[in-house]
Design a protein around this nucleic acid. Structure first.
Length: 794
DNA sequence: GTGTAATGCTATTGG
DNA sequence: AGCATTACAC
């Protein structure tokens, strides 16, 4: 032990030698509440990482450390680094991750004390919207007075403020607000939304926070368990936490008060998610004895970049006193460029990137240096995701390697979601959204109206959709016997999977599901061409690989929450595009400013710096503008050596080409840090991007005959299959044999009518019927039409 | 009942 | 401009 201690001292020194004084003090202050106010690029991540390593070297058990980070990726990088620093394999046991994933883990472990099953489903935004739509339909109110997205964002805001539906019910002033807002039914929607989620055993993203709060608040023993376990708590990006997160962390830390939070008020950019800067002040109030450290020296950027960033942020009124400085060289001035439109903007940036990477000089601001030589050192930042499109097109044509963060994540692809929905339903048969998603994939003769009836039946009897199927009998639900049989076939397939899930691991089970459901054939058949089909099938196989990887990893990690499918699905629901990044090939990175938080790149382009775009026109309240300014501050401080700020004079937005004006933030930058490249306003690309003329041959391979035939053949096969299908099961059946011209009929939708004529045979037998309520006669396919014959002939 | 075509709607930022 | 829901044909 003594030996160990000596060794440890040596390691301590090794560790501390890499830190400046303020950093070192912050790292060594391991007891009691600690607030680290850390400016951009001041070595914040390093301090957190080293502090944990230091804790471990002081003999603190990794089991007793909780680190809450902004992304799971950041947590993983941190863990790897800690492992390097301490050489302690046990480092793997510390809990590090995002609020959402750590809380999901706690809820999974403590499910018995929650209203949810262990394998609760995590609903993403589109699932939540779908639930809200269902509620609105159920209440028979208009989705115009109650726009689902807006409703969801209000619900989300309430949950983040820890206001449950029950709390809401007793709050007359909130309800009064609803009436003034002309949304008197809002509470009812909120209540039913929560109810439906609970019936489905599903939590939305905000529930992960709210339910964790409720769990700990309602169960003192559970709270105590985690208080005793997490003797040391660290929170990164503290400026971006919301009420729910603040409360949970505070509760957990109440026992030992060994809580260290790190943040920078100037980088608070998530107000729309309920984040408030005030929690930094709350922390100081809650812990009057908190040690406070300021990290104000920036190690990341040149003086010109820091100067520009400081001159922007100083225009914000609400700020904690702090000055960011750097001892780095002055460096190149910040390049400010105006381009004609968004296409030229992308082309200009493409050319500039090529020049930088090839080390060619640019006579205007003498941008040459061998320091930036790889695409991976370059990043393009924009305010909205929609801006990435033009870059994709231009870079794609020029074969400039790039990767986009925050695009549709792999797990959001429809075919992947389909397979995931099967798995979710197996793990949690209560999950209505998953049921609705896959009941028709592949088609099994169960349509919308059947699902609607099933939902009504289930709601009336308090069953889940899956349970309802067992209790269905003809006559009660309005579902016909033949369809009930189909439902039962579906259910018994899922039931078999459930049984098999006890024997098989997640990976084998997933494979079985994909095989037995024939989902691949279905996806192929649905795809518009062979290429798409190939890609989609590839994605499904990739998904299977990912389950396989998870099972393998879980097997190696004794602390993992099991290798179960349920754990996998919860994991995947919280995946972000950052977790998917691929560093194998050097590529230019494109992302929103929000996603860039915490990252750094030698060369950064901040694009679309125009009025109403950046700052966003939708965030124009005084506080909103301050947040946009902080966003601008975050964007500029990502750059180490080179920073470009671009804006265009004309941009295509929301279907219109509009004239654009420079962002007001650009005027705020001290001119001594700026090089305005006047030439760029008449910039024409030097390569590749010639203006498209009609005479030029299109490089569009979709027009190639070989591809055309491929498309045709797929469709032909489709048609053939359909014909086959029809002929084998429906041929020979005679629909409404007694129906003839003159018959009186009634239709469930069109009402009373008289048959004018009957034509065709079997599947194609049609009747032309004149309905009383409808001006033009209807031609109905008798195989599908639901009519009652009132009298065969008058 | 299902698939497709046309229409209608909405439109930051993200876990 | 894109996407989702709806309307209609099969």
């Amino acid at each position: 032990m003594k030996q160990n201690r000596l060794e440890s001292n040596e390691q301590d020194n090794q560790l501390l030698i890499h830190l400046n004084q303020a950093q070192r003090q912050a790292v060594q202050n391991i007891e009691g509440p600690t607030l680290i106010v850390a400016g951009a690029g001041s070595g914040k991540t390093r301090v957190i990482t080293f502090r944990i390593a230091y804790l471990l070297l002081q003999g603190v058990s990794p089991f007793s450390i909780l680190a809450l980070t902004f992304t799971n990726k950041a947590a993983k990088v941190m863990k790897d680094r800690i492992f390097q620093l301490t050489n302690w394999k046990e480092g793997r046991y510390l809990w590090a991750g995002t609020f959402h994933s750590i809380f999901a883990r706690i809820l999974r472990e403590e499910w018995a004390n929650t209203p949810y099953p262990q394998n609760f489903t995590i609903y993403d935004t589109s699932d939540s919207i779908s639930v809200i739509r269902a509620v609105i339909k159920e209440l028979d109110i208009s989705n115009k007075t109650y726009p689902p997205r807006q409703i969801l964002s209000r619900i989300s805001g309430l949950k983040n403020e820890l206001i449950t539906a029950k709390d809401y019910q007793h709050d007359e002033s909130l309800k009064e607000q609803d009436r003034l807002r002309l949304q008197p039914k809002f509470f009812e929607i909120y209540r039913r939304y929560c109810e439906k989620c609970i019936y489905s055993g599903a939590m939305d993203f905000d529930d992960l926070l709210l339910q964790t709060y409720l769990l700990l608040n309602n169960n003192p023993t559970v709270l105590q368990k985690y208080q005793l376990r997490f003797r040391h708590i660290m929170v990164d990006e503290y400026q971006d936490i919301n009420e729910a997160q603040y409360k949970v962390v505070s509760m957990l830390a109440d026992k030992f008060e060994n809580i260290c939070v790190v943040g920078d008020d100037a980088q608070s950019i998530y107000a729309f998610r309920g984040a408030k800067i005030k929690y930094i002040q709350e922390f100081r109030k809650r812990y009057a004895n908190a040690a406070i450290y300021r990290l104000e020296q920036n190690y990341r950027s040149t003086k010109s970049i820091i100067g520009a960033a400081n001159s922007i942020i100083k225009n914000n009124k609400k700020q904690i006193e702090k000055t960011l400085f750097t001892d780095n060289e002055f460096g190149k001035k910040v390049n400010l460029c105006e381009l004609r439109n968004e296409i030229v903007e992308a082309e200009y940036i493409r050319d500039e990137i090529l020049r930088i990477v090839n080390g060619e000089s640019n006579d205007s601001n003498e941008i040459t240096n061998g320091q930036i030589s790889s695409y991976s050192q370059i990043c393009i930042l924009y305010r909205t995701n929609a801006q990435s499109r033009v870059f994709e097109e231009v870079f794609g044509k020029s074969r400039l390697p790039y990767q986009i963060f925050g695009n549709i994540s792999f797990y959001q692809r429809s075919e992947v979601k389909d397979v995931l929905a099967y798995l979710k339903l197996i793990v949690n048969p209560g999950d209505q959204e998953s049921f609705k998603r896959i009941i028709g994939k592949p088609t099994r003769g169960i349509g919308q109206s059947t699902v609607d009836r099933l939902i009504v039946f289930a709601n009336r009897n308090g069953y889940s959709l899956m349970e309802s199927i067992d209790y269905l009998s003809q006559g009660h639900s309005g579902i016909s016997g033949s369809i009930i049989a189909k439902l039962k076939v579906f259910k018994s397939m899922i039931d078999r999977f459930v049984v098999e899930s006890e024997k098989l691991n997640a990976s084998d089970l997933s494979q079985l599901v994909v095989e037995r459901t024939r989902i691949i054939d279905f996806v192929k058949q649905r795809a518009e061409n062979e290429e798409v089909a190939f890609e989609k099938v590839g994605n499904i196989k990739e998904l299977l690989n990912s389950v396989g990887d998870f099972v393998e990893q879980a097997g190696n990690d004794p602390e993992a929450s099991g290798e179960s499918l349920g754990a996998y699905l919860q994991n995947v629901a919280l995946y972000t595009s950052q977790d998917e990044q691929d560093v194998q090939i050097p590529r230019v990175t494109l992302m929103t400013v929000h996603l860039s938080k915490g990252m750094e790149f030698p060369c950064v382009f901040v694009v679309g710096l125009e009025e109403d775009l950046f700052p966003s026109a939708l965030n124009n309240s005084p506080e909103g503008v301050e947040e946009e300014r902080r966003l601008m501050y975050v964007a500029t401080t990502r750059a180490e050596k080179l920073l470009y700020l671009t804006h265009v004079s004309s941009r295509f937005r929301a279907g219109d080409r509009i004239q654009s004006f420079p962002s007001p933030f650009l005027d705020e930058i001290d001119k001594k840090f700026i090089f305005r490249d006047r030439k760029t306003s008449f910039y024409s690309p030097t390569l590749g991007g010639k203006p498209k003329t009609k005479s030029e041959p299109k490089n569009n391979f979709y027009y190639e005959p070989s591809n055309l035939s491929a498309i045709m053949s797929v469709k032909d096969i489709d048609k053939m299959k359909k014909v086959e299908h029809q002929s084998e099961d429906k041929n020979g059946e005679d629909h409404y044999p007694n129906l003839r011209s003159g018959s009186k009929v009634s239709h469930h939708k069109f009402g009373l009518g008289v048959v004018k004529s009957v034509e065709g045979k079997g599947q194609n037998k049609k009747a032309i019927i004149e309905f009383e309520k409808i001006p033009t006669p209807k031609k109905l396919l008798l195989a599908y039409a639901k009519i009652k014959i009132l009298r065969t002939k008058s």
